[in-house]
Design a protein around this nucleic acid. Structure first.
Lengths: 353, 353
DNA sequence: CTGTTAGCGCATTCAA
DNA sequence: TTGAATGCGCTAACAG
């Protein structure tokens, strides 16, 4: 396709190729002192317009690029932000990361991403690495309290995303899980459903706690007695969720609606419903939490509680930047974003009454 | 949920909280010289077992974490790798990034991710940033030749992922697009299709070139005359693709199969087919390139050319690590991964003959 | 407005 | 096997 000059590269270690120009080289080339060159390049401090231009030209000429490591060392803070997420391949986290990166880049910051796959050790290891990097701050979808605590005790500003450990440890941007789940459940109740199952994977994080609570609150408000057998616990895998859904539907064929507490569980539930040949929503209504692409591609499209994942990420980044560059704002703040119920075709009136 | 000790934080800038312990502090605490402390911590050079243990204990005690910036400055190379991708929200790139991060982390390297949204300026800007960071290397899904050339001329080792600019500039890990497209088209031909449309967004990158070529090669091999009107050019957006598909199907109602050259275009095509109320595959067969979650959730599930995105990322990282840590290997190498056709339910025999 | 000096935290000579 | 000295590349005081 393209075939321009094949740039110099000989397979040896980069640093062996040619010593990169330093600010000394730049100063010599421009005929000024290193500090003047520094001021001209960084834009801080005085520098005569003519001199500045001369330095900029010289930089262009010799290909000078300031060493970010040296700069960080000297200024005792870097332009990097550590981002610790649970699963980049899950579109919720991918969107979150994209939102963070977008906002950070706009603020001139770099995103260092670590995927912990939900493992506590990897999360803590990531936190340590961020500390070593002297990051500007960190944004974490916490798996445990440990990583966050480690970062905080090392003096790193942290923003917790989506989930929260501790109460007022640091800034946090969450989704109002309770309101979302309550809304979804209420929607089903409004359609006439009474035996609504909840498929959920955890109830220890703020996410699971909130969603379970919202589900229960809606039932209680409607005067529908809670039935513990309808709360099916599973693990964070589509296969496991499918199996759990299978057992649930076998055990309780009277269930008329299933509320899956996240996109992965919804996938399992959807597959199981398909496998059994049940019609949606005639035989069974399905509601999910978290809108991902497949939900609007299938037919009937899946009714779901959409989370503003991209905006969540953006907000985290903005909070971090504000806190670190703005005036002192000691109080950690918790921002709660509202999810919205997208009513699509997977929910309808139950067959009998 | 959790409620452990609220770590020390008062909203001021991290560095203001407490000076982080340096290797000097560590040395003092352990009762050795800084150089001995350094050797004990980094594990390079001599250090008596007892002394080393004493230093390690002291480090633990005072919470010493070596400064990665200082280390990079001194060693003139960092432990960070720059990763430049086009769209983190697209699951192909998300998987690619996840694969890269996974393998890099296993090698003790950090992933710095920049999302360029397919914009050349942002890509070049990202490349510059990587150079400033003195990255260990860079992995790029190139949008233009410029960013890659910039990196290479700064002496940064580059691995091009998915697409390639230049011929032997640097290592590259690609998917055999031609073989994949050829296979998909052959599959349709084998079912009896003769008027097969190709929905494609670009034919300037190696991806588009390969897919178009594979499509044509299969037709030629089957003795089916090429029909330029059946190649519908669109842009990289589901909406645009849907509109293009609409025009195509209106103009050429005789088309019996559509081959969408990537997952975004497939989404547009699928939506249009649904909108028109066409039955798949009875009225129209659909094949995609690149397997993403929705394709196996819809019914009929979409036949597609699956790309090993995660493995692609892993391979890029491995290549980079090998080149930078292994012995001299001057020849840039191009690895070509094989995609595989997943025959699902969206392809069948055409209605008439 | 510019140059000189010093030191960020670390790894690496070289001597002991 | 350890310690003292040096400098990676940069910016912030300070003096001119």
């Amino acid at each position: 396709v393209a075939s321009r000059r094949p740039p110099a590269t000989d397979g040896r270690h980069p640093s062996a190729i040619r010593r990169r120009p330093t600010i000394q080289d730049l100063a010599r080339e421009a005929g000024v002192s290193p500090s003047t060159a520094s001021r001209a390049i960084s834009g801080t401090g005085y520098a005569a317009a003519a001199v500045r231009q001369r330095v900029l030209d010289a930089a262009e000429r010799i290909g000078y690029v300031p060493d970010a490591n040296a700069r960080s060392l000297r200024k005792r803070t870097s332009r990097s932000v550590g981002v610790l997420v649970s699963d980049l391949r899950n579109s919720f986290y991918a969107d979150l990361a994209a939102g963070i990166e977008q906002e950070l880049r706009a603020a001139g910051l770099l995103t260092i991403v670590v995927n912990d796959d939900g493992r506590v050790e990897d999360e803590v290891e990531g936190a340590r690495t961020f500390i070593a990097m002297r990051v500007f701050g960190a944004i974490v979808t916490p798996v445990s309290a440990e990583a966050v605590a480690t970062l905080l005790s090392a003096g790193v500003q942290v923003v917790q995303a989506d989930r929260q450990f501790g109460d007022r440890w640091c800034d946090a941007v969450l989704v109002d899980n309770e309101a979302g789940a309550e809304q979804a459940t209420r929607h089903l109740l409004g359609l006439g459903h009474r035996r609504i199952a909840l498929l959920i994977d955890e109830t220890v994080w703020t996410t699971g706690v909130g969603r379970l609570r919202g589900y229960r609150a809606a039932l209680a408000a409607a005067g529908v007695p809670g039935d513990d057998e309808l709360v099916a616990y599973t693990s964070f895998h589509a296969e496991a969720a499918q199996e759990t859904a299978r057992l649930l539907l076998e055990r309780r064929p009277d269930v008329t609606a299933v509320f899956a507490a996240n996109n992965v569980l919804a996938e399992g539930a959807f597959r199981e419903v398909r496998r059994r040949g049940l019609r949606i929503p005639e035989d069974l209504s399905l509601v999910a939490f978290d809108d991902v692409p497949w939900m609007s591609m299938v037919s009937p499209a899946v009714t779901t509680v959409a989370q503003p994942a991209l905006e969540l990420g953006r907000t985290c980044a903005r909070l971090l930047v504000d806190r670190l560059s703005g005036p002192v704002r000691p109080e950690p703040q918790t921002v709660r974003l509202q999810p919205s119920l997208l009513v699509r075709a997977s929910t309808g009136r139950p067959a009998e009454g």
